[in-house]
Simulated assay, not measured.
Amino acid sequence: MTVSLPLVFVLGFFVWGSIKFLGVRPWIVILIALFGFWLSHTFFAPAIESGTRTGVTLINGSHA
């Protein structure tokens, strides 16, 4: 059985769990999200995208 969930839903679940069970402050979550958006507009973005794609390929076991 294959279940398809949007990435935003999965990340939201982890954020909710981190705030509720690990005691992470909501302002830290917001700060990390804003830093991620800022980082995506720098010269690091291609390296991050490449690394993410490689990681997904390794986890899925598919070969491009």
Rank of each mutant, 00 (worst) to 15 (best):
T57I: 05
T42W: 00
S4W: 07
L34V: 11
E49H: 04
V10C: 07
G61H: 03
S4C: 15
G61I: 01
W16C: 08
V3M: 15
L58T: 10
R25D: 11
W27P: 06
H41R: 13
E49K: 11
V8P: 10
F37M: 10
E49F: 04
L39C: 03
G17R: 13
G12I: 07
G55N: 04
V10H: 00
T52N: 12
I19C: 01
S4I: 14
P26E: 00
A33W: 07
T2G: 10
F21W: 15
F43C: 01
F21Y: 12
G12L: 04
G61N: 01
W16E: 13
P46H: 06
F9Y: 10
I59E: 04
T2Q: 12
L34H: 05
L5F: 08
G12W: 01
K20P: 01
S62D: 15
T2E: 13
V10P: 02
S18E: 07
F14V: 02
G61Q: 03
I48A: 03
S18G: 13
F9H: 12
G51R: 04
G51D: 02
F13Y: 15
L5A: 10
A33K: 08
P46Q: 02
L22T: 10
G51E: 02
V24E: 02
V10T: 08
P26D: 00
I32A: 09
S62W: 13
F43T: 14
N60Y: 06
S50Q: 11
W27A: 14
